[in-house]
Amino acid sequence: MSRTECGSSDMWSPEKIAALLAEDVPYGDLTTDLLGIGSAPARMVFRLRQAGVVAGVEAAAQLIRAAGGAAELQSATGARVEAGTVLLRAEGPAGALHRGWKVSQTLVEYLSGIATATAALVEAARAVSPHIAVVTTRKTFPGVKAAMIEAIKAGGALPHRLGLSETVLVFPEHRAFLPDTLAALARLKREAPEKRVVVEVDTLEGVEAILPAAPDILQCEKMAPEGIAEVVALVRAAGIAVKVAAAGGVNAGNAAAYAAAGADILVTSAPYWAKPADVKVVLEPA
C-alpha cells in the first residue's frame, strides 16, 4: 500500500462516521440553530499551519458530507506538505459545516501529529541504516486503534503487533511460568512454524540464556544503544540468524543511535503520544 492510499481503507464506515458526529452533535447545534444562520451558504478551508505529514483528511471529508456539506480533498493521507498547504475545501449550508467543523478538524490534528512524529523517527533511523524496520507497539488508545495505525503507516512505519491473536511474543512474564524455557521455545517453533518467535530480554545474561533456542527475533527492552551493540555482537559471534529489535524508550531523538548500534528493528510507542498538528480552519459565508 502506498502512502497516498493509506486513508482509503474501509475503516471509516458510515456507522463510525455517524458515531463520531453523534458524540459532538447529539441533538443538533444549539448555537447555530438559535442564531438562525443554518441555511446560509458557507465555505470552509482546512490548512496545516506547519510542515508535516497529513493523516485523517479522508475521514474529515466523510464527516463533513455526513453532516450535510460537500467536501473536496486537496491533500491525501501520507502526503508531506509545507506550512499553509490546503488539506480540504468544503461548502454547503452553514449549519452543515458548523456540525462537521470541529470533530473533523480535531481528527486531522491528532492523526497528522502522529504521522508527522512517525516520519521524523523513521527518517532519523534510516539516515543511518536505510533498511531498518520501524514498527509501533499495541499501546494505541483503546477504541481508536485503526485510526492510529493508519496514521503511523502514513508516516512510514508499520504495526509491530496488532493484538495478541496474530503474533508470538514471549515475555519474561510468560517465562516465569515455564519450567524449561528452551524446551518451550522449541515447541513453539514446531507447533507454529509459520510464525516468527519473538522473545523479550532486558539483559545480556538474558540474551545468552535465550540464544541457544535460536528465536527469530530478540526484542531488547529498555537497553541503551551501547547494550544493543553488545547484543548484536553476541548474536554475530553465535552465528545464528536472529534479528535484534530495540524496544522501550525509542524515539526520534535516539533512533539514529539505535540504528548505528546495529538494531534490525526499532519498536516504539512514541508516535502515539505526539503533539497534535495545528490545523487552521476558515469557515465563512460563501
Rank of each mutant, 00 (worst) to 15 (best):
E5H: 12
C6F: 14
G7Q: 12
S9W: 08
S13A: 14
E15F: 07
A18L: 05
A19I: 06
A22W: 06
E23G: 02
D24P: 00
G28Y: 04
G28E: 10
T31W: 02
T32C: 11
D33L: 13
L35F: 12
G38V: 00
F46V: 00
L48V: 02
A55I: 01
V57M: 01
A60K: 01
Q62R: 04
A66D: 06
A70T: 13
A70W: 08
A70S: 08
Q74T: 08
A76Y: 13
A79Y: 04
R80C: 15
R80I: 12
E82C: 11
T85K: 08
L88H: 02
E91T: 09
E91N: 10
G92E: 10
P93S: 14
G95W: 11
H98E: 11
H98A: 13
W101D: 11
K102A: 11
V103S: 00
T106H: 08
T106S: 08
S112W: 07
I114N: 01
T118W: 08
A120C: 14
L121A: 13
L121R: 11
E123A: 12
A125W: 04
A125T: 02
A125C: 05
A127I: 04
A127T: 07
P130I: 06
I132W: 00
T137G: 02
A146H: 05
M148T: 01
I152V: 05
G156R: 07
A157W: 01
L158C: 08
R161I: 05
G163F: 05
P172W: 12
E173G: 14
E173K: 14
R175Y: 01
R175M: 04
D180E: 09
T181M: 02
L182T: 06
A183I: 07
A183F: 07
R187N: 06
R190K: 10
A192Y: 15
P193I: 14
V197L: 13
V198F: 15
D202Q: 11
V207L: 12
E208K: 09
A209M: 06
A209V: 03
A213I: 01
A214T: 11
I217S: 06
I217F: 03
Q219P: 12
E221M: 07
E221H: 07
A224E: 11
A224K: 06
E226M: 00
E226Y: 05
G227L: 06
A229M: 03
E230W: 04
V232P: 00
A233T: 09
V235S: 11
V235L: 09
A237H: 08
A237M: 09
I240V: 15
A241R: 10
V242M: 01
A245T: 06
A245L: 09
A246H: 07
G248M: 06
N251W: 08
N254R: 09
A256V: 10
A256R: 13
A257T: 04
A259I: 10
A261N: 04
A261H: 02
A261E: 03
I265P: 14
L266E: 12
S269I: 09
K275Y: 12
P276V: 01
D278L: 13
K280G: 10
K280L: 08
V281F: 02
V281A: 00
L283Y: 05
E284Q: 14
A286I: 03
